[in-house]
Design a protein around this nucleic acid. Structure first.
Lengths: 341, 341
DNA sequence: CTTTTTTACCAAAGCGCTTTGAGTGGAGGC
DNA sequence: GCCTCCACTCAAAGCGCTTTGGTAAAAAAG
């Protein structure tokens, strides 16, 4: 069942059928209806390879996930992609996922550009001086960054949350409760969002005249075991923290487990405050009754919006780069309380 | 930079260049080397759309993720896809992800088959009497099932773990510890793996002459809040369970939280035993020191193997369906202990 | 009623690749 | 010396679609 078959069956030329189906104006309304009905009835679906070749557009967006040494797949990635995928589906685009190692990641982008297998890409987990941004700019491959990095020569389109403000607010909240020994279990600080979060914490501490303590600042892959192990470790310090900020709910759960193992009560003996990306399968407690006090921002919504921004970028290449920075919301749960005296 | 350009530059015909690059035998070894060098030097990469059109093969595998009413994205999906993606990349295949609702899922497969946008698909979360299997068989689209369903008319290729044996063994372990009031927090039982797990539990209970108690058997989306809420609920029963089996480590963590909230000690007052899919970001404790007693099987390894099976299936369509059923391993952690007397 | 414009359609030329079928020159056989 | 065969190479025909550059008929304008 090809366009040609359909055209022959209708007694029309392939040209007209193509135009009828693609909504071009120079087709009689009745003819168009007839064509559409027949296409539907006969189960005609255009061959995507042919369409790609003829139009030069892949109608596909690429996402690259690089599994580094730790082999950890980012749990937020799935949520982000779920949001983005909905946007693509609504616009008739497909999404390809490429799994690679960090060494081959740049080559993947190069080959995507050369073989025109995608119309654009979305960048995750941007690092300081991320090489991918200038590369994509030089390749002329449209892209949207989830996150942002400072000091790029040419502007680009991105969507980010105000990580620094979020963590400054969180820290101020703890300070207001009387905490001064505040720990931070951060993501890897070569990732720029983690860097910003740390900046936010430092800003708030400095504002209150509190000197940061090195032994309370740690960063690693945001897993629960990181939260568990580091919390245990910090509890053994001569002056353990009275409050812990974590970068992810997984890390927060690890920390909570360590407190519980140590016979400490969260929110009373030690406070825990986390950022919550709103993972659908890992809720922060039950509706209206959060477990953790948290700064909240939906990563799925970010995926959906980023996708829309990319599609707009692809369809109006001349438009200047745009950016959005979303604020987070601080919700209060039982995991934080006044500093023990 | 097209094949034609490259051919002209080399003073050869496109035919020869194409053959040289694709490893056909009727090309002089020197010529082949010259072509390959030039292609590399000039950065030639074949246009994938053209290749698809000419060969009729998409060199792409499709994965469909349907977000049902709960809008929960399956957290195991990401791990599975990470494993599969590595296999695809190694074989020069791409992977597309389609996000859809359950109502449109079948249409997606139909359109994939019609427009030849993928060479095969992998099915996740199969249900009893899953409609997708006969549909794909009638469409002639190669597929591999992760999981399996009983009673399909025509055999198909699948990879599964022995869910029933795993949960029977787990239950027997609890029974040996003296537990008789054993609860099961299962996944949705219209998913066939969950059904098998329940069967396994029932088998072991029956073997020990223990009558299952309705109020201790629950199934839902495998989130942590499910574990938390149901455990709380069960603790309020006149005869609460002394042991809880959960289908996922997320649910187990919810259950653990509920126990801790209630001032109960896990492994002493109430035992918890879970299945562990080995999520990279959600480890069952630290290396060598598990938190939960668990039946273990790596879902990422399953993804990789399923992908390999599918690629083999695509490249040798005449071969009969094959299947693998993996055993799980029971590892003992501190979350289980003798039933309280 | 003729001329111009508009409407509705079509033939044919690609898009960049693979693949069939044909052809060339040189080595070997008689 | 002529014929066969082999090893290489090539021209050309698609793959299924879009799109340019038309043309014929109908409608509007003069």
């Amino acid at each position: 069942m090809t366009l040609k078959d359909l055209a022959r069956h209708l007694g029309l030329s392939p040209t007209t059928v193509s135009r009828a189906l693609n909504g071009y104006p120079e087709v009689n309304a009745q003819t168009r209806a007839r064509v559409k009905d027949a296409a539907h009835a006969m189960g005609y679906v255009p061959n995507i390879g042919a369409q790609r070749l003829a139009t030069g557009r892949a109608k596909t967006i690429g996402h690259v996930v690089s599994l580094d040494d730790h082999e950890i797949i980012n749990p937020f990635f799935a949520e982000f992609v779920a949001g983005a995928g909905e946007a693509y589906a609504a616009a008739g685009y497909e999404m390809t996922l490429s799994v690679c190692s960090q060494q081959t990641e740049l080559d993947i982008y190069r080959s995507m550009a050369a073989r025109r297998s995608v119309d654009g890409v979305i960048l995750h987990n941007v690092r300081r001086d991320d090489e991918r941004i200038p590369l994509l700019q030089s390749l002329g491959l449209p892209f949207v960054v989830h996150g942002r990095v400072a000091g790029n020569e040419h502007p680009y389109t991105y969507l980010d949350i105000s990580n620094d403000d979020a963590f400054a607010t969180a820290t101020e909240h703890l300070i207001a409760l009387g905490h001064t020994r505040i720990a931070l279990l951060n993501g890897l600080t070569d990732l720029s969002f983690a860097q910003r979060r740390e900046d936010g914490v430092h800003r708030a501490l400095a504002g209150a005249g509190i000197a940061p303590v090195d032994t309370l600042f740690h960063s690693a892959e945001m897993s629960d075991s990181f939260g568990y192990l580091k919390t245990q470790e910090m509890l053994r310090l001569p002056h353990p923290p009275t409050a812990i900020l974590t970068a992810s709910i997984l890390t927060a759960m690890g920390a909570a487990r360590a407190l519980s193992d140590a016979g400490l009560q969260m929110g009373k003996d030690v406070s825990v405050l986390t950022h919550d990306d709103v993972l659908s399968y890992m809720s922060n407690g039950v509706e209206g009754a959060p477990v953790f006090t948290a700064t909240v921002s939906s990563i799925r919504a970010a995926g959906s919006k980023s996708a829309q921004m990319l599609l707009k970028l692809i369809n109006t290449p001349a438009a200047p780069p745009v950016s959005q920075v979303w604020d987070t919301e601080l919700i209060i749960g039982p995991s934080t309380g006044p500093a023990p005296t």
